[in-house]
Design a protein around this nucleic acid. Structure first.
Lengths: 244, 244
DNA sequence: ACAAAAGTGTTGGCCCTACACCCATGA
DNA sequence: TCATGGGTGTAGGGCCAACACTTTTGT
């Protein structure tokens, strides 16, 4: 398509294109978080070609003409890591002039949260090598991906304290201890068990199921699921589920 | 430049370009807020050409190859409205496929806060017609600018409650009543005078000047300025200036 | 003297924090 | 029976919200 472009800058009506200046390329990146045995992990793919061949990178790719950036991020994620149906939000747009050594590339970064329990196997099935790493030990990624990861972690931590996004990392049935451990892992600090439980239960956003944990060598814990409907009510009332 | 583009998709080294698919165009937009007689206003420019000729729009334009999106937003702002040295942050990237009827355009929106007292005259001096409007009465803007404005307002309101960005809207010397009125205007609700003053003063982020208000028909109020250094200390200590 | 806004303290209630023991279960 | 985590209540302190009058100044 570019081959035959002939545009007039700021032309009135005839031209199909807006200007004939160089355009930065536009990509999306997607920082995928998952919880593995209580540890916060991030999904990376290994680069096959230059620049940064062999280095680990955040999955991503170019934006097509017929999709939003969020769609593009979901598509790339599916293509590169086989992940689908994940929670995804836009994070920030990174535009340092030299962030890609080949040419000018602006990237709209996103972050996604996945239930590793549902997706454990699939992640590495694609042609590209993909693997999970401890989120706060990762360093030396390609491009400016260290920075993107840092911003994503910050966002995850702060958003977790005022929005119920943590449930996106857990299986749909979970115990209160699972949930507390998730908060402790991500926020990096211990929480008081009784206060944590009271706070969550009194908002009624958790529904106690008729089931208990299985296969544990001690008293089996109550299972809950998150009540999205109830949460939206709370939100409308202005009450907002804040954790320390 | 586009004229002579010949690229190979994902080529190893020789090609200067990454791929030969159509690229979305990339623009920036900048929602400029100012405080005028206690009212929150937004700066708009009138479009001269199609589409949406004659309609009001948020200032913005294309991103050059040698500037970040933030730089581009500052540059466009200076070019279209003569505003310089303003506080500016990235807001969100808008990418609906049909947001521009001519061709695919993705826009990285920003918001800026200006001290209208310093900039009152300049805004309309440029070739393009520019004018200030009441921020929450604006409707019928070009493109998806109604939505961009809405998101900017949301962000301003929420950020105001936990970051000291309000000072960017006031002259460098201000009274506590000025500051309170700003918060009341932007948040859209009345605040208690004594609680407001106590809260702010006990953090020590305000420095009382050796001056008082001038030319008022009643007791002249103490003037203050914001102590950025002191605020950063607070931030490092984790204390975070939250207002209701 | 009057109008207009500046400036100033106290109290009650709520929420958050800190804290320790018994219970149920499987091995 | 023991080891392991599940589950539970209370008291004290800090913080926030509500509230009204006196002071200063210009007209």
């Amino acid at each position: 398509m570019n081959k035959s472009q002939k545009h007039v800058r700021d032309a009135g009506g005839a031209s199909k294109f807006l200007y004939d200046y160089p355009r930065p390329a536009l990509t999306v990146d997607c920082v995928v978080f998952g919880l593995d045995e209580g540890a916060l992990k991030v999904l990376l793919v290994r680069r096959e070609s230059e620049p940064f061949a062999g280095r680990w990178a955040i999955p991503g790719g170019f934006v097509n003409m017929d999709e939003t950036v969020e769609r593009a991020a979901l598509r790339e994620l599916a293509e590169e890591t086989s992940l689908e149906n994940v929670f995804l939000e836009q994070l920030y747009t990174f535009s340092r002039v030299d962030r890609d050594p080949r040419e000018r590339v602006v990237s709209v970064a996103h972050y996604a949260l996945v239930r590793l329990s549902d997706h454990r196997v699939k992640a590495a099935t694609d042609a590209r090598e993909a693997s999970w790493f401890l989120a706060d030990e990762v360093r030396g990624l390609a491009f400016d991906h260290d920075e993107i990861l840092r911003v994503a972690l910050e966002r995850l931590r702060s958003k977790l304290t005022y929005k119920p996004i943590g449930f996106e990392l857990l299986p749909s049935k979970f115990t209160l201890s699972d949930l507390q451990q998730l908060y402790e892992t991500v926020l990096g600090k211990p929480l008081d068990k009784r206060n944590f439980r009271r706070k969550l239960l009194e908002t009624n956003v958790l529904i106690a199921l008729d089931e208990r944990e299985l296969g544990v060598a001690h008293r089996a814990a109550q299972l809950y699921r998150f009540d999205k409907r109830r949460y939206r009510e709370l939100e409308r009332e202005g009450r907002s589920l804040e954790l320390p």
